[in-house]
Write a protein that binds this DNA or RNA. Structure first.
Length: 190
DNA sequence: TATGAGATCAACT
DNA sequence: GTTGATCTCATAC
């Protein structure tokens, strides 16, 4: 019985614009809890919406390190958001994980999020981190080791492309990618 | 279905 | 002091 192929650091050592769509359909588990990635966004330090645009700070330091690591930051003072660092050291590019289709550990997710419909468990970057238990304590962890597990998709799904959500700078760039037709997206694609 | 307020913190002006 | 890669709840239509 063959193990499903795991995503290793070389998967992330490519253009963020190739990694982002390739993550759609992959399985993300955190301490055994998670599901299929259905929505992501790409960020690169050459455009002003990225946290790394203004240079390195203590908060974004992980983005400036090697690919294949988790960058976790606090959003609006309340939520945590999970990113995967891409490309090469110093490139300061990352993919924001925006939504999952919940598959493993539904009971744990519901315990952390409160009773709610499956559709709303992981349909947003803050919701997903709350459901999986990801916090800044996990900032800088490698993605190919526990508690993370990333498993490649078996076939390429149909990908929807659109503009990123919730930003005002570089808002016109079509760097949001999603699983076409998924009901677990944080917002539908136009 | 849509809009608005509040929660709350790191970075920046 | 303001802004933001957000979410929830309340109120309006």
């Amino acid at each position: 019985m063959a193990e499903p192929p795991a995503l290793h650091q070389n998967f992330f050592a490519r253009s963020v614009h190739r990694v982002a769509p390739d993550l759609i359909g992959a399985m993300l588990l955190f301490n055994g809890v998670g599901g299929r990635i259905v929505e992501v966004e790409a960020y690169h330090h050459t455009e002003p919406a990225a946290h790394s645009f203004g240079g390195e700070t203590p908060r974004n330091a992980v983005m400036f390190g090697p690919p294949g690591y988790a960058y976790v930051y606090r959003s609006y003072g309340i939520h945590w958001c999970l990113n995967f660092v891409c490309e090469r050291e110093g490139s300061a590019s990352a993919v924001l994980i925006r939504a999952l289709e919940p598959i493993e550990g539904l009971a744990s997710m519901r315990r952390r999020r409160g009773l709610m419909s499956e559709r709303l468990l992981c349909s947003g970057p803050g919701r997903l981190c709350q459901a999986l238990g990801v916090t800044v304590a996990h900032n800088g962890l490698a993605l190919d080791r526990t508690p993370f597990a990333l498993i490649a998709r078996d076939r390429k799904p149909e990908i929807a492309v659109g503009v990123r959500i919730g930003i005002t700078k570089a808002a016109e760039l079509p760097w949001r990618y999603g699983l076409k037709g998924s009901r677990f997206l944080s917002k539908p694609f136009r």
